[in-house]
């Protein structure tokens, strides 16, 4: 008699999502910088903004989450989408 087990794992079906296409160049692109609100995040993203502009990014859009403990609220995502960003860099952790 084989032992029959009930799977205790998550079996929620999820459609695979392809990662966003990588940018081939920064020239003329709009880059969103998302600060999750941890100490030091702004220092990192300020420097990144300078470097991105030096490398040809046309526009930098700054956004921040109201709290780092929760996923970005819809408003933040909507504002990034409305700014028509080509890519977003998230400043995670301290």
């Amino acid at each position: 008699m084989p032992t029959i087990l009930v799977s205790p794992l998550d079996e929620t079906p999820r459609p695979a999502t392809a990662p966003a296409p990588r940018l081939k160049t920064l020239a003329g692109k709009t880059v969103g910088l998302l600060d999750i609100g941890k100490p030091g995040g702004a220092i990192f993203l300020d420097r990144l903004a300078v470097l991105l502009e030096q490398r040809g990014a046309a526009r930098i859009v700054r956004e921040s989450k109201p709290t780092f403990t929760k996923p970005a609220p819809a408003e933040v995502m909507d504002r990034l989408a409305a700014a028509k960003v080509d890519a977003v860099i998230e400043g995670l952790a301290d």
Binding site: P2, T3, I4, L5, V6, S7, P8, L9, E11
Partner: peptide, 29 residues
Amino acid sequence: ATRMALDDSLDPIDYCRQFGDPLPVVPPT
């Protein structure tokens, strides 16, 4: 939930190590 039939050659406690914390678990038969 999916039902998994274990071959007799497999020890259920060893097999179930993938489902738990690092301590042995009671096999969910």
